[in-house]
Amino acid sequence: MKIDFSFLSKYHEALLMGLGTTLQLTVICFGLALVLGFVLALLRGSRIKPVAWAAMLYVEFFRGTPVLVQLFWIFYCLPIFLGTELSNFTSAVVCLSLYGGATMSESFRSGLKSIGREQYDAAHALGLTPWVRTVHVLLPQAVLRAVPVLLSNGVGLFKESALISAVGMAELMFIGSTISNRTARPVEVFTAIALIYFIVAFPLTRLVAVLERRILRRLAI
C-alpha cells in the first residue's frame, strides 16, 4: 500500500472544525477546572473535618478512576438522574471539568506546601493578620509556583479530550475516525491526527518549561 497524504486536503475543513471544537472544549474546561481546583484545594485545608474529607474523597475518586469511566457515567447516568437530556457538549464539559478540577486542586495544594516555614515566620514577625498573610503572601506565591503545573494540566485536558470521541461528539479524534472509516486510509488519517495534536501540544509544553524556569528563578531566595 502506498502512503499518500494528499487526499487529506479534501478534508481540511472538517479537520479544522474538529480541532476548533477540541480547543473550545479544552479552554472552557480549563477555566472551570481552575476554579473548581482552587475551591477544592481550600476545602481540603478546611478545619471542619467532614468538609476536608469530602473534598479529599472527591479528588481521590476522580484521580483514581479512568476518565473514560467518568465519561460514560456522565453520558449515560447523569441524564437519568437529572431527568433531562444533556447535549454532548455539555456532558463533555461537565466530565472534563470535574476531572480537571481534581488534578488542579493537587497542583494548587503542592504550590501551597512548597512555601517555606521562613515565610510564615517573617509574616508573623511583621505582625501580618491571617487575612493579609494569606492573600498577600501565601496565595500569590502558591499560585505562581503552581502556574507551570496548572498549564501542564491544561495540556493534559487537551489530550484527554480525545476520549470524548467515544461518545460520538464531533471533535478532532471523532472526525479523524470518521474520515478513516470513509476513506479506508487509517495510516494517513491517524498519523495526521497525531501530528495535529502534537503540533498544538508540543509548543505549549516548551512554553511551560520556559515559564517554569523563569518563575523558579524569580522565586529563588
Binding site: E118, Q119, D121, A122, A125, G127, Q141, L144, R218
Partner: peptide, 15 residues
Amino acid sequence: KKVGMVFQHYTLFPH
C-alpha cells in the same frame, strides 16, 4: 507590634 526581627535566612517575600 513593638518588636521586630531579622532572620538568618533572608525571609523577604520573593513575589
